[in-house]
Design a binder for these strands. Sequence first.
DNA 1: GTTGAGCGTT
Length: 462
Amino acid sequence: MSQYIQVAEEEGDEPMEVPSEDDGTLLLSTLSAQFPGACGLKYRNPDTGSMRGIRLADGRLYPPDTEWSNRIYVAVFPKSENKRKSGPPTTNSTPSTTTSPVVNEEQDSLAARSKKYERQKCSDLIVLGLPWKSNEEDLRKYFSQFGDLLMVQVKKDPKTGQSKGFGFIRFSDYEAQIKCMSQRHMIDGRWCDVRIPNSKDGAQQMMNRKVFVGRCTEDMTAEDLRSYFGKYGEVVDVFIPKPFRAFAFVTFADPEVSQGLCGEDHIIKGASVHISSAAPKNYDRQNDRKGTPTQAHPGFTGSYAPSPWSQGPRGTNQPIPNQGAPIAQGSLPNNLGLGNLSLGALHINPAMLAAAQAMLSGQGGWGPIGLVSQGNNPPPQGGTITPNSATVTGGGGETSSQASVQSFGSIGSGSQGAAPVPPPVPNNNSFLGWGSSQGSEPGGSPGVGWGTPQSKPGGTWN
DNA sequence: GTTGAGCGTT
């Protein structure tokens, strides 16, 4: 007979009840639906005082002594380098809905830097599907459950002030980001998805001392940028086009520095700027093929699979076809592998990207595009593709980049008719139930071990 | 006081 088992995220935390199966076991998928990333269960044995692990076999957790009884269990997560809870207990408590630049700039101090660069970096995340009425405060309230937020934005129509139904957030802690991306979110009565924005560069561009700083605000002066980026290395030049064009160029003395920053989002004066490699003028045109939209800064326009593990196949414990990770086992990797370029849910690392690009683009596209016009850089070394660093030298043309990513990204893209490759899943529209069906989910289809995280289903959808 | 896939005043 089925029963509910009390599970807490950490010892001492408020437990939540998760349902067992009829045979008394607890599906790991059920557990991980509520505790994304959980890979096991444990409890403190009162006799010995030590923690006791729960037996796990074939994706099922077995009750100790044939009985779960009333004790509170604790979810087990893949080991992380330091096991503090989400977010450092720093000064990071800004009640305002916008970013506090001071905090962020402090966090990026030199002392923290070496550490930071060993860890996975947070990136801005796009929140899709927001109710029209949700504002930044709502978002902040909701998403702080995952960790400290550095930035919250709801995109609005400048004229009407009406929300466009999506926004951006940024966590300070990468674990918070991972956790957040591993599930869907019920916000004010709508299911929302959190993904890495497409605007994020999938593959980095080549060694270049100059970086493009996008999304600058008008109050950012050259001096601001110089002092901000000076933390990362010697800045030899800052260029801000006049009149205001919302971007700037920063040139470092050391290409390693500029390279290391590429692909990142930084928060300066409360605004999230995006750093990418400064592409030479006309770079895109020359490399453009068959009418691909021209883009000076190729973005990652593939569609991201909406974290399929958050919602396992209904009532089953089947792995999701074509999903690279053993998600059915619930083992959400805690770090999705260094060098994953923060691609989040998809396990694409530079090596994969490189391979895909190579395949899809025939050849060409891997030349040292940026180097030639730069002139003052060392010639490309053989093998400058470094699969395990977060940067890939040698950039593909953006056409190939897009193509390659889309073929990955079509996983479970549901009703996104635009995907060039059909989803490699059974032709089953109820697959994961994403698609466009808002409101089909909460309360529907029983037997799925995923209720609503904390909020109110049954609300109205609009 | 409407809408529901997308991608941020490059």
